[in-house]
Amino acid sequence: MAQTVFIDGAAGTTGLEIADRLAGRPEFELIALPEARRKDDAARAEALNAADFAILCLPDDAAREAVAMIGNDTTRVIDASTAHRVAPGWVYGFPEVEGRDEVANARRVSNPGCYSTGFIALLAPLIRAGLLPADWPYTCNAVSGYSGGGKALIARFEDDRDIAWRGYALQLGHKHVPEMQARAGLSRSPLFTPAVIPAMRGMVVEVPLPLSAMEGAASPEALREELARFYQGSRIVRMGEEPADGELLLRGSRAPTDAMELSVFASPDGSQARLVAVLDNLGKGASGAAVQSLNLMAGLHEAAGLRL
Rank of each mutant, 00 (worst) to 15 (best):
E247W: 11
I7Y: 11
L186I: 02
P243W: 01
M297I: 04
E65N: 03
F265V: 00
A124D: 05
D101C: 10
A255S: 01
T75G: 07
A195S: 12
R25A: 03
Y138D: 00
A87M: 06
P112G: 07
Y92R: 03
I236K: 01
V97R: 01
A87Y: 14
N111C: 13
A277Q: 11
G89N: 09
A164R: 11
R85S: 02
N281M: 15
L211E: 01
G71R: 12
E96C: 04
S187T: 12
G246N: 13
Q272R: 04
G130P: 08
A54G: 02
R166A: 15
F230S: 03
A259P: 14
L58E: 04
A218K: 05
Q181C: 06
M239Q: 03
V67D: 08
D245I: 12
R25N: 10
E241L: 02
S110A: 13
E158M: 06
L122M: 07
A62W: 11
A47V: 10
V204N: 02
E98C: 08
L186P: 06
T139C: 06
S263H: 11
D61K: 11
S271Q: 07
P26E: 11
A152H: 15
D61P: 15
E27P: 05
V91M: 13
E179T: 04
A222V: 10
G149Y: 06
A87I: 05
F265A: 08
L58P: 01
T193Q: 10
S144C: 11
G113Q: 05
F192A: 09
A152N: 07
L294C: 00
W165Q: 08
L282P: 00
M297W: 09
D73I: 15
V5F: 00
R188C: 04
S212F: 04
S147N: 08
N49M: 13
A155S: 10
E98F: 11
Y115D: 13
N295G: 00
L132K: 08
V67P: 05
G99K: 13
V97C: 12
I154H: 14
L275T: 06
E206S: 11
P256F: 06
N141T: 01
R107V: 13
F28K: 03
G173S: 15
G12N: 00
D162G: 11
E35Q: 14
A255C: 00
I120T: 00
A182E: 14
R166V: 15
S219C: 01
A32P: 02
S253V: 12
I70W: 04
R44P: 01
E102S: 09
P243K: 04
D269S: 14
A66V: 14
V67E: 06
S263G: 10
G93Y: 07
E261K: 01
F6V: 05
T193I: 12
V97Q: 04
L191N: 15
G252N: 07
A303W: 09
R183G: 01
R128Q: 14
D162I: 15
L294S: 01
R274S: 07
L132P: 02
R251K: 15
S219Y: 00
P88R: 09
A11T: 08
